[in-house]
C-alpha cells in the first residue's frame, strides 16, 4: 500500500496501529476484561493467547465493536485506531467494521454463491463502480486468500458447499474484499484439520504485508509460528505482552511461563 512491506525483523520499530488504554469490559456483573493496556503494531501479526474464558475473544470484539450487539456488554476505557477513539459518539460502528474486518472461529459463509459471499462487502460499501470492477475485486480477494485456484471454476456454487478449510479461506477472502486495514481473527483454525490449518497460517503470514492482523489462538505453536507479538491473557488480565520470541523463550511473568510450558490452561 503506502510503503514497501517490512521484513519481520523490523517489527520493533513499526508504527502503532491500535492503542488500548485502561479497557474494562463487563457482561452484566461479570468483569471479563480488567484494565487492559496494549499497543498493537501496524503490519504485523499479534497473537492473543491464554486459557479459555480469559477474555481473548471479548477483547478482540472490542476492537471492531462487535460487543455492541450484546445487550449486557459494557465497554469502558479508550481504544484508538490511528488515533481516533472508536467509542466516540461520532463513530459509526458500521464504518468502523468496514475498516476492521473480522474472521470468526467457525467458518460462517453466507448461504449464497461463492462470488456473492466475497462481493457482498464491496457491494454494500460501494467499492465497485460496475460489474467488471466487482469481478476484479472478487478475484483479487480470492487470490490473496489462496483459494482462487480451487473455486475459480465454480464461483456460482454455494459457499456452504465447500470444505471447512475452504470455507474459512472464503471467509478470509470476504473479510479482505472490503479492503480493511485491520483484520481480527478469532481462533480461525480451531475447526480445521492440520493441512487446512497450515494453508491458513501461510495465508496469515502473507496478509501481514498489508494488514494489521490480530489473531486469537489456543495453540501456542500457532502463535509462535505466525505472530511477531504475543499477548498473554489470564482471567481477564493482560499478564504479559511483548515480542513473540521473548514471550515463549524468556517470559517475565510466572503465569506466562507456566502457561507456555503447558502447566496451566
Amino acid at each position: 500500500m503506502y510503503d514497501a512491506p517490512n521484513p519481520a525483523t523490523e517489527v520493533g520499530q513499526q508504527d502503532i496501529k491500535i492503542t488500548a488504554k485502561d479497557v474494562q469490559v463487563y457482561y452484566a456483573d461479570t468483569h471479563a476484561i480488567k484494565n487492559v493496556n496494549v499497543d498493537i503494531v501496524d503490519r504485523a501479526v499479534t497473537a492473543f493467547i491464554g486459557p479459555s474464558g480469559c477474555g481473548k475473544s471479548t477483547f478482540l470484539r472490542c476492537i471492531n465493536r462487535m460487543n455492541d450487539t450484546i445487550d449486557i456488554c459494557r465497554v469502558e476505557g479508550d481504544i484508538r485506531i490511528d488515533g481516533d477513539d472508536i467509542y466516540d459518539k461520532r463513530v459509526d460502528p458500521v464504518q468502523l467494521r468496514a475498516k476492521v474486518g473480522m474472521v470468526f472461529q467457525k467458518p460462517n459463509p453466507f448461504p449464497k454463491s461463492i462470488y456473492d459471499n466475497v462481493a457482498y462487502g464491496p457491494r454494500i460499501h460501494g467499492l465497485a463502480k460496475n460489474k467488471a470492477d466487482l469481478d476484479i475485486i472478487v478475484e483479487r480477494a480470492l487470490r490473496r486468500a489462496a483459494i482462487w485456484d480451487e473455486v475459480k471454476d465454480r464461483l456460482t456454487a454455494p459457499g456452504t458447499g465447500l470444505s471447512g478449510g475452504q470455507q474459512q479461506r472464503l471467509c478470509i477472502a470476504r473479510a479482505i474484499a472490503t479492503e480493511p486495514e485491520v483484520l481480527l481473527m478469532d481462533e480461525p483454525c480451531s475447526a480445521l484439520d492440520p493441512i487446512a490449518t497450515a494453508q491458513v497460517e501461510e495465508l496469515i503470514d502473507e496478509l501481514r504485508r498489508d494488514y494489521t492482523v490480530v489473531i486469537v489462538t489456543h495453540s501456542m505453536q500457532q502463535a509462535a509460528r505466525v505472530s511477531q507479538k504475543t499477548a498473554f491473557f489470564h482471567l481477564g488480565d493482560l499478564v504479559e505482552y511483548g515480542d513473540t520470541e521473548q514471550i515463549f523463550t524468556n517470559p517475565k511473568d510466572e503465569r506466562t511461563e507456566r502457561y507456555v510450558t503447558g502447566r496451566i490452561g
Binding site: 467494521r97 470468526f104 460462517n108 453466507f110 457482498y120 454494500i124 471467509c171 472490503t178
Partner: peptide, 20 residues
C-alpha cells in the same frame, strides 16, 4: 453466525436482517 458474518463485513443491522 450469519448475523455476525454480515455485521463483520460492515453491514448495518438492517442490512444484515434484510439481506441475510
Amino acid at each position: 453466525s450469519i448475523r455476525d458474518a454480515a455485521l463483520g463485513v460492515g453491514a448495518s443491522k438492517m442490512q444484515a436482517v434484510f439481506h441475510h
